[in-house]
Design a protein around this nucleic acid. Structure first.
Lengths: 131, 131
DNA sequence: TTATCTGCAAACCGTTTGCAAAGTT
DNA sequence: AACTTTGCAAACGGTTTGCAGATAA
């Protein structure tokens, strides 16, 4: 069973408080404000523990770096290819599609991941100005 | 401008012939049958060149490893979490959703990526047998 | 002939692992 | 007391880079 430690509590609270998925490095940056001696390794292990427990979801972005978010909130994001900011979407229109895929393919589907890429309004404007 | 070499031609033909996205390692394995002295580095650089040229699409899977596929074929996949095999889906139901997101968020959307995860029928059966 | 491509080796960087000490139950 | 977590340092593995020589245009 997983053990409660101040570090892990801090890790989880940082991830819960975030408004978008965080990298391990970002979690580390936030948690070290309260725990200056914390090791990055500990962040990885704490996050892994929460992922195993089903509390946190981990997904790999196109830059090859993992992002962590609270698993309870099932969300999709719109990511700006220029400034990397992402906007959470309010809906998940795929439960219905999943059911259809189960019927058609026989897979036991356990999850999905979807991301849209493009320029956010700010960067689109900047692109026009700067070429 | 990009230069034509026998190695690059072979890299592209391996990627085009594949029925699902390949890792750089897999491309390397296939191309070295014709070019035994080929370096893995060359495969990476050739693939990058084709990605820059827009001929090949690169995406990072949840195992952190990049997969390469011909960009022209816009496809989505259903990936087994146990044996890693993936089944291409015949449709892309998201063009409509993209239009809606453009209206709602003002993003200039340039693409998307979607993957479903689960157990394929074979692995689901194996899981039941082996526990 | 000039810029690009290749191969080798080494660097890179996010992530993982081994181990002894510290902390949790 | 038994077992998990922590911190450090070192390993790992896919990918990238520097450089000298080979090759395409």
């Amino acid at each position: 069973m997983q053990r409660q430690t101040p570090q892990r509590r801090a890790i989880l609270s940082v991830v819960s408080a975030a408004s978008s998925p965080l990298t391990a490095e970002q979690v580390y940056g936030a948690v070290t404000e309260a725990f200056p001696h914390l090791a990055l390794t500990t962040v990885y292990r704490g996050l892994d523990a929460y992922v195993d427990a089903g509390l946190v979801r981990r997904s790999i972005y196109d830059d090859g770096v993992a992002r962590y978010e609270i698993a309870a909130e099932h969300r999709h994001f719109l990511t700006c290819t220029r400034c990397k900011k992402s906007v959470p979407l309010s809906v998940c229109p795929f439960e219905q599609l999943e059911e259809q895929l189960v019927r058609e393919t026989g897979f036991q589907i356990s999850g999905h991941k979807m991301e849209f890429f493009g320029l956010c309004p700010d960067c689109a404007e900047r692109n026009e100005r700067e070429g």
